[in-house]
Simulated scan of single mutants.
Amino acid sequence: MRTAVLGLLCVTGLLANELQISQPSHLTVLQGDSVSMNCSFNYTGDDRVYGKWYKRQPEGENQYLDKSSAACVLLHPALLDNVSECVVTTHIPNISFNHSGGYNCEVKIPSSKQSIDSEGEGTRLEVYVRPSVSIDQHAEVVAGAQFTLRCVARGFYPASAGIEWFHKGALVSSGDKPDHLEKHKDGSFSAYRYLRLFPKAKDQAMVFTCNVTHIALQTPISRDVHLSVKYPPLNQLVYHRLSPSDGFQPLLGRSLYCPPGSYLELLCVVESEPASQVVWFNTSNAILGNGTNSTATMKGQASDGGVYWCRASNAFGTMQQEVRVNPESSFPVRMVTYPLFVITVSALLLYRKYSEGKAS
């Protein structure tokens, strides 16, 4: 807790029944701190001095502060003029924004000869209030759709505040003033700065930072937001294996050749947010595999050749891929047997011709 103590220059002189009271014209203090306000004057006399501070009210009676005290110290005791310097002090702890306003120092000196009733010209107490900072997000962040983030600085005083957006230390918003400044009934302010984005799926978990500067802050206030981007299924991949003990291998192309009757397992994987429902189905629309978390497997035999589809879907879209299973060796049999037949027949004809030539 800091305390601001503000002293004043003394103004000398006593004119008739009026004192020349000196008090500060303007004081500033941070909300939550404390302040001591002093007024001073010179007085020639031996009567008791009474002093109080009060807050001026727009309507109604002035609000006197309870913690006011007056003390006088005799100046130049050796002199016969008997001049004292008097100070009236009030202390306000834990200042709030409601303490803002105009204050006066009032002095009364009752006397059997001539009573004195005077006051200063007034002090304006200005309370600086630190902003509270938050980031508003009112809708889902969807890939390919415009999205707006709003950084809000609330309840600050005075009105001037800086609000900027950053990404990886680089400024991504522009403008010397906030996009919107609002004054509240109590005299405090709120301000907004918008950041408009067209996010992509790759922007998932991207971090943006809002920095707020204000005269009541020793260092800026920073708030981070991590984008949670929603997007449809992407990067669909199919893997296969011909034995439960084998690891899955990526499928190259859209066709798979495998030995007849062998074990076959197909795995379909997609990227999406949120996770997709993934199903395998055939030309009869029979569901052959059903999975969540963006993966699904289909088990069967290679003899169950044909066309299969992997379909992935979430609330933001659908993606489908075709896989054709051919129950034959890695190279189709006809591609091997036909050349072998040609070579065999050619060899037999050459041998027959050679035998006939030798016999003749």
Results as ranks from 00 to 15, higher is better:
residue 250 P to K: 03
residue 50 Y to W: 08
residue 199 P to M: 04
residue 270 V to W: 06
residue 167 H to F: 12
residue 166 F to V: 04
residue 192 Y to L: 13
residue 277 Q to K: 13
residue 35 V to F: 01
residue 359 A to S: 11
residue 219 T to Y: 07
residue 102 G to F: 02
residue 103 Y to Q: 12
residue 80 L to G: 12
residue 350 L to A: 10
residue 178 P to T: 08
residue 290 N to Y: 08
residue 240 H to P: 01
residue 291 G to F: 07
residue 132 S to I: 10
residue 295 T to H: 12
residue 179 D to W: 06
residue 84 S to M: 13
residue 64 Y to L: 03
residue 229 V to G: 08
residue 152 V to Q: 04
residue 305 G to M: 03
residue 217 L to R: 03
residue 203 D to M: 08
residue 95 I to S: 07
residue 158 P to T: 13
residue 66 D to E: 14
residue 321 Q to E: 11
residue 107 V to H: 02
residue 188 S to H: 04
residue 151 C to H: 01
residue 11 V to H: 14
residue 86 C to F: 13
residue 325 V to A: 01
residue 104 N to R: 14
residue 73 V to Q: 13
residue 353 K to G: 07
residue 172 V to L: 02
residue 151 C to V: 03
residue 202 K to P: 11
residue 120 G to W: 05
residue 228 S to F: 05
residue 29 V to Y: 05
residue 83 V to T: 14
residue 26 H to K: 10
residue 120 G to P: 07
residue 36 S to M: 13
residue 93 P to Y: 09
residue 218 Q to E: 13
residue 47 D to H: 08
residue 194 Y to G: 01
residue 113 K to S: 12
residue 329 S to C: 00
residue 71 A to F: 10
residue 315 A to L: 07
residue 190 S to F: 10
residue 171 L to Y: 01
residue 13 G to K: 09
residue 324 R to G: 00
residue 69 S to W: 07
residue 251 L to D: 02
residue 125 L to I: 10
residue 94 N to W: 02
residue 68 S to M: 06
residue 329 S to D: 05
residue 250 P to C: 00
residue 25 S to K: 14
residue 353 K to Q: 13
residue 5 V to S: 13
residue 279 V to C: 08
residue 329 S to M: 00
residue 287 I to K: 08
residue 64 Y to A: 06
residue 77 P to C: 11
residue 222 S to D: 12
residue 76 H to I: 11
residue 108 K to I: 15
residue 145 A to N: 04
residue 10 C to L: 14
residue 257 Y to A: 02
residue 157 Y to C: 04
residue 219 T to W: 00
residue 29 V to N: 11
residue 80 L to D: 05
residue 158 P to Y: 05
residue 298 M to R: 06
residue 343 I to G: 09
residue 339 P to F: 02
residue 52 K to L: 02
residue 95 I to C: 09
residue 239 Y to P: 00
residue 335 M to Q: 15
